[in-house]
Design a protein around this nucleic acid. Structure first.
Lengths: 402, 402
DNA sequence: ACCACTTTCGCAACGCTGTTGCCAAAGTGC
DNA sequence: GCACTTTGGCAACAGCGTTGCGAAAGTGGT
């Protein structure tokens, strides 16, 4: 008895409305259901009571009761103990059932493929790694990726049924009815079209120009596929994670690895822009007529930052990165800056301190306003793949687009 | 028989939901009504038929019929002729009644106060100008502003009744039942808190620090007041105007006058950030360790740009401005850049060309993507005051916040 | 042990939303 | 003048959150 909740590409602004924005009763229901699910997700292990859900959503307790009753009927939510009484009937604690759905996250890095299988809460159930050669042609890469996904799903199926006594068929064992897989999220660097799932360019591999990656994977795998930039996936994963405050937080994830890019989260949703072009942080010019950059311009922050890294001058690299972060923070009034990527991971303290110093200095100049906090993004190397899985999970919780 | 539509501060994300996000039937209704009103507003003089509204909103024709029936009962909408037949009953054309509501826009500039009275479509019905001395103390300025608003409203009342034959009482003449005034929007430079309507600082006048401008005006005038930065008001006015494409367009309004600031519109709504700090464009650093700026930092775009202007080197000023615009366009993937302010107005061609050249060059480097178009913002000196009035009008059309 | 009280939460009736089925109105074109 | 097309209102309907009320499940005093 599975009903349909807001699926991928469902909602644009608030209510999971039609493309044009008109909202009807099913859309209203999806919206409120997603809101409740998001609070349940955020509450995590301890769980949350109906009345707390009502308070958190602004819905009446009765509406929450009806919504949670549907969710329980669909086995997405269970009752899990009760709170201590405050003089009356104790509140029943509800919890999201993590295993009620899964999604695959795929990270196609320059030379490596990472795949993770995540449950509804975003926790990793199984993971795989494989070498990746983008030069072997689009079809071969698609085929290889599809095989990894299939292998991951069978691992997951074994995992799902749990430690089974003797040779009982996996499909029958435990609570092991087949777990619905929502789809595959794919994250990769470079410019692309998130809405259509088409790559624009892959640096160094012109044969990929304009390749319709999503459609190819949908045909091969027969399940929903969403494609996005690696920085956006990482930012989405962070937005839904513990490092970031509430559901309405705005922050920037700055990724410094072989290149420099950013993922922007505004009001709790990833901001991609109409052409999935947002977050181009690396070619921000911070030195007019400065040293030439690969891109053809001069004084790009990426060129300056990477040059400093190459010299081993991490303090200067952090100062340059901090300048760009301060520019960004001033433009968007964000709440937080998170740093990630291989280079940052190699010198976390230097970057956290250096970037923070620039933001502190700016806040001090402006007067009363508190400085934008800077932290190292948790999650590490697997963060992008986990975020890619969230491309399918997030819509369930009303975190689709900006 | 006036019902309540989405008022100021009503909706945050899409549906005019509660603070927490939960949506109920009245919220759904407000949302759809606002959607219909926005299409009616956009259609303007020619008008729009019910079926076109249905197509535009995604609602069913019957739902549109019900909504427009309510709007007609409330005298916000009238039938205005019919379309040519295509072989059946011709479509009835509906039009927004401009005079069904008014709002006051107040622009407190450095040395001048501008006040405009706008109808529902944003058209100026009446306007006033007066000298302004921020040094005369907060109470005196509030009192002066309030007197201008009152004077404007009586002018408007005369205007409303139209050319009346002989000495008929204005309240009876024509369609002249009293026009509801939605409130006053106030725009002024400098950091402030849009949500609370409190000023943080007014450069050069420390006695204004932390002044609760909104509450003071509400007490004095007894009507709703919304306060915002001048650049945000200008951007809002442009977002609802003809210069900007659809309701979902994202653009930046760059204002170069005595200072340099920006108003950001993302997805059709003004982006202010949690602390109304967004749009600080002028102190973006584009020249590391460059010449010192008033703010205490070095290489700020404002310092470089204004220095070039002072030298009379408009080409260089435009190039610097264009660099900042390109940085911004890359970060947010916006659709359009609009330029305004006294300095731009004095040399429109030089700035439009110069900024455009930088954006074109970047687009060419990136390959296929078309360059972000650059235009001079229409509206001129009165644009900010008109945008301030839109602070009250926009919520009616679902254009509250981001 | 019992009772009064508090608090949670589901059932039932309700108002209001957009939706669907149907039909009158108002045109065109043969 | 008739057949056809298209618009748009009326009426019945399903489904949303809301309200009123009562059962369930505790605490705390007697």
């Amino acid at each position: 008895m599975h009903r349909t909740y807001a699926g991928p590409g469902g909602g644009r602004r608030g209510v999971g409305a039609t493309a044009a924005g008109g909202a009807n009763l099913p859309a209203l229901r999806s919206h409120n259901t997603a809101l409740v699910l998001d609070l349940l997700r955020t509450a995590g292990e301890p769980g949350i009571s109906r009345l707390e859900l009502a308070e958190g959503t602004g819905l009446t307790p009765q509406a929450v009761s009806k919504i949670t009753a549907r969710l329980r009927a669909d086995a997405l939510v269970t009752e899990a103990g009760r709170r201590a009484s405050t003089g009356g009937k104790p509140r029943t604690v509800l919890r999201l059932v993590p295993g009620a759905g899964q999604a695959v996250g795929l990270h196609l890095d320059r030379d490596e493929l990472r795949a993770v299988l995540c449950d509804l809460t975003g926790a990793v159930v199984a993971g795989r790694r494989a070498p990746l050669d983008l030069g072997s042609g689009a079809q071969a890469v698609v085929e290889g990726a599809a095989r990894e996904v299939e292998a991951l799903l069978s691992e997951g199926a074994a995992e799902r049924s749990g430690p089974v006594p003797d040779g009982a068929p996996a499909a029958i064992a435990g609570a092991g009815r087949s777990v619905p897989v929502l789809g595959v999220g794919v994250a990769l660097p470079g410019p692309l079209d998130h809405a259509r799932g088409v790559l624009h360019r892959v640096t160094g591999f012109p044969e990929w120009d304009g390749f319709p990656l999503r459609d190819a994977l949908v045909r091969r795998l027969g399940m929903p596929v969403v494609v996005d930039k690696d920085t956006n996936a990482a930012a989405l994963g962070l937005a839904l994670g513990e490092a970031v405050g509430g559901a309405d937080t705005s922050f920037a994830y700055l990724h410094l690895g072989t290149g420099l890019g950013a993922g922007l989260v505004v009001g709790g949703a990833v901001h991609r822009g109409a052409r999935t072009g947002a977050g181009e942080f690396g070619h921000q010019v911070v030195q007019l007529d400065g040293p030439p950059c690969e891109c053809g311009d001069r004084g790009c922050i990426e060129a300056l930052c990477l040059a400093a890294v190459a010299r081993g001058d991490m303090a200067e690299a952090a100062r340059v990165l901090g300048t760009g972060a301060a520019n960004l923070a001033g433009l968007l009034d964000i709440d937080l800056v998170l740093l990630g990527g291989r280079t940052v991971a190699a010198h976390p303290d230097a970057f956290e301190r250096g970037v923070g110093a620039v933001l502190d200095a700016r806040a001090r100049r402006e007067g009363s306003t508190a400085a934008v906090p800077v932290r190292i993004a948790p999650g590490g190397a697997r963060g992008v793949a986990e975020g890619a899985a969230q491309l399918l999970l997030a819509p369930l919780f009303g975190r689709a687009e900006a």
